[in-house]
Design a protein around this nucleic acid. Structure first.
Lengths: 231, 231
DNA sequence: GTAATATCCGAACGAACGTTCGAACTGGTA
DNA sequence: TACCAGTTCGAACGTTCGTTCGGATATTAC
């Protein structure tokens, strides 16, 4: 990892990529913290939990971060940064919107599967950050979402269908499908990541592009609408 | 609300449905707590927050629940119970698996939209319960998931397609699409619940039943697989 | 009325929390 | 050797947490 990835304090004056001991230990702390945050959530994890798991004293942790919230931020921001960086590389020189969408889905899911803890923390603890830190991650997320939406729009425009799926619904349905996997998917299990990505891709893309609505679905509309209330 | 919905302490000896003051106030506390839990998460909500929002003294809250955790449980269990109850009613005498699926989706989404706070707490704070309380809700959830999976299997069997979507992926993709809506959907906004449900239904069902895979998607498989690692 | 019960709350408890402080180490440099 | 910056940590600080206790007030039953 390059020394500038985490805004390192190593302060090397020579312009080469260096991995200082400080960087390595910070990364180790972040990875451990991410694992525990994923296991028992950010707010019910204490700095003492992280201290115990890393064998770094409670006070010692504050040599590597200025607060517990900054730990969460570093996990989220670093994780998201890597997703985006990789995505931009892979989308270079790609024009076909459907291929773009495939790359987007595969990129998201394979990174998710390989970094389950960090990605769970990124998607599940979205609102645990406050102030500037929240804004920073949130802005990135909005940008990411808009990119997905734009790709979907291109797909939709590339082949006119009647009665198209609402773009907002489609965008968030896609993210829902993908981000929900931390609730069930086991990267070590039978189902390989490539199979997962392939299935999600087919499921979503065929649904999104289909222009035909089953008669059965229409029949549903005649049902009396359910009215829920709090009493 | 019937006096037995919350295992009421009202202890009426007459066999009629009664709404005691106790029940009403408990329900008010639960609804308020659900709202705050949804806003700032269970673990960062204090009993003092709930006390302030309900105008019930801190100690007074413990007349209606025996712990903060029980508050969370009551919210989740009551909410889930109502979803299940309504679903079972609507599925009675329905045979067509596609209609079943439509009812399932519409039931879930319309209830979600009408009870956003409770449903967010139900799906977002799944792991905040411990021990028996966790097991109880979790068992119900498993049952609910299996029902969805079974309906999907029936749909799949009713019309043989080659290369069908993996059932596990499909099931959790569906729940991901539906449960993710607390991250973006505004029931008061432009998009009506019926439109939301209709779009989700079409998106999912067409994708799930489609038997054709685009050549574009196949092309993706020749990409060099991405390898993510922690370094 | 009065007794019994249900409802409510101010005040406090012990525990756990995030963070800080000053001192003790460590390794490299002169 | 002495020195300095980087690293480490035991101990403690002030705060907030969930919960409890004893008693006050309201409601019901007789």
């Amino acid at each position: 990892m390059s020394s500038n990835t985490f805004d390192s304090k190593s302060g090397s004056k020579i312009r080469v990529i260096r991995v200082t001991k400080y960087d390595q230990k910070l990364e180790f702390i972040l990875r451990t913290a991410a694992r525990i945050f994923a296991e028992k959530s950010y707010h019910s994890t204490s700095m003492r939990d992280i201290s115990r798991a890393t064998n770094v004293s409670l006070a010692g942790l504050y040599h590597y971060c200025k607060s517990k919230e900054e730990l969460l931020f570093l996990i989220q921001d670093n994780c998201f940064g890597r997703v985006l960086e990789r995505l931009e590389q892979r989308l270079e020189n790609v024009d076909d919107p459907i291929v773009k969408l495939g790359i987007f889905i595969e990129n998201h899911l394979s990174f998710f599967a390989a970094n389950m803890s960090e990605m769970k923390v990124l998607s599940h603890e979205a609102e645990s950050l406050r102030g500037d830190l929240y804004t920073h991650v949130s802005t990135r997320k909005t940008k990411y979402t808009k990119l997905a939406r734009q790709i979907l729009q291109e797909v939709q425009q590339s082949q006119q269908t009647k009665d198209p799926i609402d773009l907002t619904v489609a965008t968030y349905a896609l993210f829902g499908m993908m981000n929900w996997i931390y609730n069930w998917y086991d990267p070590q299990g039978k189902l390989k990541v490539s199979e997962l990505a392939g299935n999600v891709m087919r499921l979503f893309l065929n649904g999104f592009r289909a222009n035909e609505v089953s008669g059965h679905v229409h029949a549903l509309r005649s049902e009396t609408p359910s009215v829920w209330s709090h009493g």
